[in-house]
Design a protein around this nucleic acid. Sequence first.
DNA 1: TTGATTTAGGCAAACGTTTGCCTAACTTGT
DNA 2: ACAAGTTAGGCAAACGTTTGCCTAAATCAA
Lengths: 336, 336
Amino acid sequence: MTKRLASPRAASLATVAREAGVSVATVSRIVNGKTGRASVQTIARVNAAVVELGYQPNHVGRALRRRESRVVAMLAPNLDNPAMAAIAVSTEAALRAAGYVMILCDTHDRADLQDEYLRAMRSQFVQGYVLVSAVKSAALSDALARGEAIVFVSRRNPDGGGAYVGIDNRGAGADAADHLLARGIEDLAVIYPAQGSSSTAERVDGFIERLVARGVPTERIAQASAPGLSHLQVGYDAARALVDGAGGTWPRGLLCVSDLMAYGAYRLATEQGVAIPSECLVVGIDANPLNAWIAPWLTSVHIPYRDFGAKVVEQLSSLWSGTVPDDCLLPHSLDS
Amino acid sequence: MTKRLASPRAASLATVAREAGVSVATVSRIVNGKTGRASVQTIARVNAAVVELGYQPNHVGRALRRRESRVVAMLAPNLDNPAMAAIAVSTEAALRAAGYVMILCDTHDRADLQDEYLRAMRSQFVQGYVLVSAVKSAALSDALARGEAIVFVSRRNPDGGGAYVGIDNRGAGADAADHLLARGIEDLAVIYPAQGSSSTAERVDGFIERLVARGVPTERIAQASAPGLSHLQVGYDAARALVDGAGGTWPRGLLCVSDLMAYGAYRLATEQGVAIPSECLVVGIDANPLNAWIAPWLTSVHIPYRDFGAKVVEQLSSLWSGTVPDDCLLPHSLDS
DNA sequence: TTGATTTAGGCAAACGTTTGCCTAACTTGT
DNA sequence: ACAAGTTAGGCAAACGTTTGCCTAAATCAA
């Protein structure tokens, strides 16, 4: 027979304990699977009460007592970027599968917002942080010094060290170089954002190094960059700088360090009547799923963003168990 | 593999109280701005201690005591869709400005996942829910019956009623109709997903109603749909169904109820050598910012997703204060 | 002066969990 | 039969806040 509850309060350990005629401590132990401490009959009685009352452990009480929540905060610079969104989605799924919930914060790539979020999250007993393309900031250094569990994604710890999930950026740049050379293109250029993060810089380096190693004279590798946060605009501006710097002519092959930058460059090409890809083969990095539908002109290095989440959770688990994990580099690929 | 250092505890009310030589209660009142209860000197002393120790209120303790967190859960069907990501970003920003944090859950449009999330969130003392394109489910009905604060976005409450933020979908469809008619196009079609949500169905209805009202014979308005979750694929499949149903000829004007569907249709057109927009003017709905860069052929009804967040927070506030807010319809626009 | 009111702030009980410690009642070993 | 060990489970103290209630002292009214 079921009781009609006077208040809409959810069942607590106390409710269950009363119903089962045992103490709160016993119920707590049983629902937490500490088996050795109770008789079979008691366990059965408690479990019955749990089911009947629909008891669900209260995470707030638990967090207070254990001084830990099952919450992980992700700080990402801008979810407008489909690559970031993909990372967020896959991380959220992996965390949830591991029994965590994810709080998402958009830092807009601003150090002050990153600081504010880091501080705010601390008082939520957040258990770990996933920092996508983190920037250097005071609260970040503090958090690292305190030994918080922090996984860096896509961009390495600006203070050096720390757990990292990403790809071999140099390798990705090198692959792009090989791809272009394999098509007999030797009039090459690369564009990138002026506020260089470690990852974009590494892509550029890898690209140039490989070209040089394969005998392309340095002076035939044009470079240009542009400031700004929107990779779309940066791509447009950098491409303009590149072309203007070359007396109005486009290179035959162009590496853009992200797909969004490639979209920006494409717009300029369209405006200037340059045919892509026949006059200029554009290579991006990210392999946005939209490319197949509306940007078939773009060749792009595939990054397995959908696999990032699982790796991030692995690294967090390592940190929680007290070890410092090795960097995790996922495989990229450029289908030819 | 090195061991991490144990972190020193953050300052609590007790720490501050000891430092300032007052009781915990007094500190609590002061940090909460209950001014009438303390002398000016005490307030000054406490504030000094707060600053010195870098005290930040612990949200977990507060949540436990007040039986409310400052957490809102957003359940969204798929963040891969840029429109969803835009809603998530703007809601997160608006909530944070109002002092809340947002937990993000990706339901993949599945009722069972939506149920699981709703139940899991309850024991986190989540204060409100933002349900983007919610589907009918048991836990949703339960939550509504319990009187939880729930705001529906983009798709109305499947059980009817409830707070809603969205656009005038019929109006958007009608605007698309006007746009096409203004260009003298009368050979028209519309494609939409087979699993019709209220919003896409309304867009189709508004489109057709307006066309009929302006004298287009019903038999000249072709329709097609396709099943599936990915609007990209749905657009492709539906366009194929449409064209096949018309003996291989494309309409002169085509409304796709989302931009992603338009991308899908575009791919088919490209494959079939149909020139967009000269042979077929495609109109989408969403106005994805990428369009200007890589899909200039697409005309799209602009939806102010960036304004959704503020409205969502308004509606949540209404719910929290006990009133039932009116539906909030934001203005859409189609720049001609 | 006295009684009434205000001011300033402390006490302690929640909120829901977890866990070290304690204690009865058994079970063994000898 | 008695000491030693095991089992089953209760007690109560945290964790960090908030808040109703209480109490001194100070102020005020008459």
